[in-house]
Every structure is written in C-alpha cells, then in structure tokens.
C-alpha cells in the first residue's frame, strides 16, 4: 500500500511545481465560465425555462472548477508506454493496475483541487445570477462530495482501461482523443446535461461519463433531492465494480504479453 501512496505523493509534487501555469489555467477557465454564463443568461432572457437560471450558473462553475478531472492526460505515462521505458515499472514488485490507478487519481485530484478552490472562491464573490450559489442543504453537500469521490474512482478506472489499450496499439492519440471528447460532451462540460432533452437525460445520466461531475452537481443544486440520492450512488458503485474488474483483467493480459515480448 505504501508504494501506491508514494506514487501518489510524487505525482502531487510534480503538479505543485507549476504554479505559474496554474494561475494562467485558472484565469482561462474563469473566462470560459463567464462566457458560458453570459450565453445562458442571454438565452434565458428570451425564453425562461422551468430549470432555474441560478442552477445552470452553479452547474457551469462547478464544471469549470473541476474541468481538469475530466481530461484523460498523463503525457508522462503515455510517453513511457510509447518509448518502452515502462519496462522499468514492469520490473518493480508492484501491481501495475494499482500503481497507475494511484497515479491517475493523484493527477486528477491535485491538478483540479489546486485550481478548483480559488475558482470557487472567485465564483462565490460574483453577484447573484453570475456567481455560484450555496448547496441546497448540508446533507446535499455531503452527499455530493461522496458522489464526487465515487465519480473519481469510476473515471480513473475508465482511464486505466484506455491505458491498457494504449499498451496494445502504441499510438494512444486516437483512443485518448476519443475518450476525452466523449467525456466533454457526455459529462455536461459543453452543455449542461440538465439542458439536454429530458428523454436523452434518462440515458446519458446512466453512463459512466455523467458520474464524475454531473451526478455530484445535481445533488449539490438539489435537482436530485436527498431522498433519491441512493439511486445515483448505486449507479456509481455498479460502474466502479464493473470498470475495475474489466481493467484488472485487461492489465493482467497485456502485462503477460509485454513480458513475453521483452525476452
């Protein structure tokens, strides 16, 4: 267990080094948030909807704040696989699946928390109609945090599966890009899932992509009341189990192949 933790810590240190880059990233993300909110405000002015505008604004800020969690990008790791220096990792007495799981999680958490906190602070200072609103209730907040953790586990498992495929094709860009983009659309980053047609929402919210951000945000704003939270958590738990099982199986298979090739 300790080695997985140190993989986590090392990664966090690397992330922390890029403070300047982070500031630029935060400002960029804030501008994106403001653009989207301005757009939805103009749209709402023409034709108000049953879903309150303030919920959409909150949705946009939370999406922007945790945007980094969506991206499947660990260029180091991909380079390692392509260049073959992953062989060093294969020599270590570790379960590779767990090792990379820790790495991916670390990158997602540190990469986004460092950005999310200042962004959310900024968003809470903005006037009503532009800024983020408080959670619907304390239980709603706690449940949404729990859902965020589960969502993170779910998406990291999904990414680990792409990684396993990468080891096979050696050129990860295609699959990587595809996953990133499905993620952007189906996670509600481009357009809040709450603004999709109702019949679509029923299906999309079941997919793993919606688990990371959309599910916790709905709990936060109260679109899904506390009493129905168990449904979201159940869906997340099922995905986590399925995706981890699939990931472990794939890694074990590929690992054997690589060892054979290396001879």
């Amino acid at each position: 267990m300790r080695s997985y933790l140190s993989a986590f810590r090392l990664r966090r240190k690397m992330e922390l080094q890029y403070r300047g880059a982070m500031l630029g990233g935060i400002i960029c993300q804030v501008v994106f948030g403001l653009i989207l909110i301005a757009l939805y405000r103009a749209l709402y002015a023409g034709k108000p909807q049953t879903l309150p505008l303030q919920h959409v604004v909150t949705y946009v800020w939370l999406q922007q704040a945790f945007f980094r969690m969506l991206l499947a990008s660990d260029p180091d790791l991909l380079d390692k696989i392509r260049s073959g220096s992953i062989a060093y990792d294969l020599c270590r007495p570790l379960n590779l699946y767990g090792f990379y799981y820790a790495r991916i999680m670390a990158q997602k958490i540190t990469g986004s928390l460092m950005r999310a906190v200042p962004m959310l602070l900024f968003a809470s200072l903005l006037p009503e109609g532009w800024g983020i609103s408080l959670p619907a209730s304390l239980p709603a907040l706690l449940l949404s945090l729990l859902a965020l953790m589960l969502g993170l586990l779910c998406v990291s498992a999904l990414e680990n599966i792409t990684m396993a495929f990468t080891m096979r094709t050696l050129d990860p860009r295609g699959i990587q890009a595809m996953l990133n983009l499905l993620m952007m659309t189906l996670s509600g980053n481009i357009l809040p899932l709450t603004l999709f047609p109702d019949s679509w929402q029923k299906v999309i919210t079941l997919l793993p992509y919606a688990q990371l951000l959309d599910a916790p945000i709905r709990l936060y704003t109260g679109d899904v009341p506390v009493g129905e939270a168990w449904r979201i958590l159940l869906i997340q738990a099922v995905w986590i189990a399925v995706l981890i099982a699939l990931g472990v199986w794939l890694w074990n298979r590929h690992q054997k192949r690589i060892v054979l090739q290396g001879g």
Partner: peptide, 8 residues
Amino acid sequence: KSVELVNA
C-alpha cells in the same frame, strides 16, 4: 509559465 492565459 502562464501560457494557458492565451487560451482564454
């Protein structure tokens, strides 16, 4: 370092 700023 803040290259991402230009992305805005």
